[in-house]
Nucleic acid binder design. Structure first.
Lengths: 349, 349
DNA sequence: TTGAAAGCGCTAACAA
DNA sequence: TTGTTAGCGCTTTCAA
């Protein structure tokens, strides 16, 4: 039961010197006598002195906390991101304060308030699905608190963003399908308006062009009712009933791919043999997998690391009264071939 | 670009009074004139005053941070636990500082050091697999920092613990199998020495006794080489080759159940029909599932909540110089019937 | 080479 | 009813 931590004062008193001297000795100041320095150092070690971060923070007017707002922790993708964030933050001596919104705007606003009260030095946010207005985040910018968006970003905020390179991922996925000797590759895409869909469509088209595969309009279908399981099923059925059905389906979302997979199986088709199905997903690797044993890997860990690095840089810039220039970082996806079975995440079944 | 937060001083200066008065007005002190109080309150609102938690913490010599050490974040069970921890911590005005050990003792020691330096007010720990010595945790107790172990606990530390009720879970699982009309229920268990295995064995035996089902020694096998996939496969094969093979297998770990599942399938048996297989797991629901559509649910979320509540209580006790009496909390498992397919977590295949 | 003093933002005992 | 003062642990000028 000793309870309390050693302070500079404790050391100073025992040595009959002032705290200022102790502080300097501990920090290797130039003009400090070797004797006192050594005395301080040894006593500090003996008493297990640890500088009190709270006092440091009070002086520097920093918290050394970075806030993180995500839709959900219990999610493979996000927990990967958290790992990445923590690794970088830890190394830089920062604490991570985690909040989850459960995918609601209200919680997002509330958690942002909590984080602002807690004086976070910076903020990492992946927006909730139904967030349409951004005053709660704008507020951080008003206080000169750096903000970086990742994965679920928006155009309305002029801040740095980290997202996966959708074009690149789609291109690689389709290229891989082609290299597995599938020729008639269909696309199930989202509605035109979203930039994600646009990029993935472009990747699909360019891959076909590169390999001189004719683009067939009837092979490109659009999900009119969201990127859902049901839409995947409906469009896969449609595709397979064409006079000349495709031998591969590339879906811009994992749910679609799973829906398509179920459907074609019901139709009595063997998936790696008769038909390839690849889904593109931000979320879990295992969700995207499908056809001839491949997956498009979205590196959540890397995303967390990158976003945090950018944020920490910006925190430094702000400290030095320098200007932040927002940028958008596109993370490349990597294609990983693995396993021998068709993998579908159990929670989606 | 205003940058700085409003302080009591700002308000005091603008109103021509002292910070002390402002502080009191804000805290609804008894003797404070209605006029000044209102003036302070309105100005505070106008300037968006938020008390600086760091200053508060410095005074109170508390950090309002609780440390959490877990083997892995990217894990369904632990991310659930984290959710539970954060919910309770948030509500109580605490920040959670998360560390992962990646299942190594060295990391665990290191992270404990980081947390001690950060002056956490309390610590929640789920031990890494190969942690055998506990000096790094004992140190917290020396500083009177409350410590609560959860899920992966040890006997050597005299602190509060939160674990699932293994006896109860095993009993319920076996009872469920019986209620599905399986009669010859085998057990694949761990070695005698671990308390977990003992409890699960007891649950199995008691369930059989309750329902007057004879206990047959040849139906009880022991994993001699760890609770692994391979052992599950080996023992399942052994069981099914008995003169009178079982019609159900209860395994004390998920990996065992999965190994058994694979094996009996290879042997041409249909799993829900010919044979039931249930695995007991601390980890993910989906891993335990198996036979006639059931799962033993281990409430990670609840475990996180419970552990945090206990910790916060102990932090209060310590503040008031009261004694902490360590207790062990057994969480009941609940049996959840759901879905219609055999579910196995994809990462384990 | 060291000490004294101020200050980071806030609270609380003591005075007035 | 309000002001003054001291102090939480630490750093950093300014003096000595």
């Amino acid at each position: 039961m000793k309870g309390n931590h050693t302070t500079l004062k404790d050391i100073a008193q025992q040595l009959g010197i002032t705290v200022a001297t102790v502080s300097r000795a501990l920090k290797d100041y130039p003009d400090i006598s070797p004797d006192t320095k050594e005395a301080v150092l040894t006593l500090a070690k003996e008493l297990k002195y640890r500088p009190n971060p709270i006092a440091l923070n009070l002086r520097s007017n920093r918290s050394h906390i970075i806030g993180v707002i995500i839709p959900e922790i219990v999610h493979y993708f996000f927990s990967t991101v958290i790992s990445g964030i923590m690794e970088v933050a830890d190394q830089a001596g920062y604490t991570v304060m985690l909040c989850q919104t459960n995918e609601t705007y209200e919680r997002e606003v509330r958690e942002a308030g909590v984080l602002l009260n807690s004086r976070v030095d910076g903020l990492l946010v992946s927006l909730s699905d139904n967030t349409q207005t951004y005053a709660h985040l704008q507020e951080f910018m008003d206080y000169d608190i750096p903000l970086v968006l990742f994965d679920r970003v928006c155009d309305q905020l002029n801040v740095s963003k980290v997202i996966v390179d959708d074009y690149d991922g789609a291109y690689k996925a389709v290229e891989h399908i082609i290299q597995q000797d599938y020729q008639r590759i269909a696309l199930i895409r989202g509605v035109n308006t979203t930039s994600i869909t646009q990029a993935r469509l472009a990747g699909y088209l360019d891959a076909l062009r590169t390999y001189n595969i004719p683009i067939q309009d009837e092979y490109i279908c659009e999900c009119t009712h969201g990127l859902t399981f049901e839409e995947g099923a409906r469009l896969a059925r449609h595709l397979m009933q064409l006079p000349s059905p495709p031998d591969a389906i590339f879906a811009v979302a994992d749910a679609i791919a799973i829906g398509a997979l179920m459907t074609v199986r019901e139709m009595g088709l063997q998936v790696p043999q008769d038909l390839a199905i690849v889904g593109f997903s931000n979320w879990e690797m295992s969700a995207v997998v499908t056809p001839p044993l491949t997956s498009v890997n979205q590196p959540g860990f890397e995303m967390g690391q990158t976003a945090t690095r950018i944020l920490l840089e910006q925190i430094e810039l702000i400290q030095n009264k320098k200007l932040i220039v927002p940028t958008t970082h596109l993370l490349k996806t990597s294609l990983i071939v693995r396993g021998s079975s068709v993998r579908v995440p159990v929670h989606n079944l």
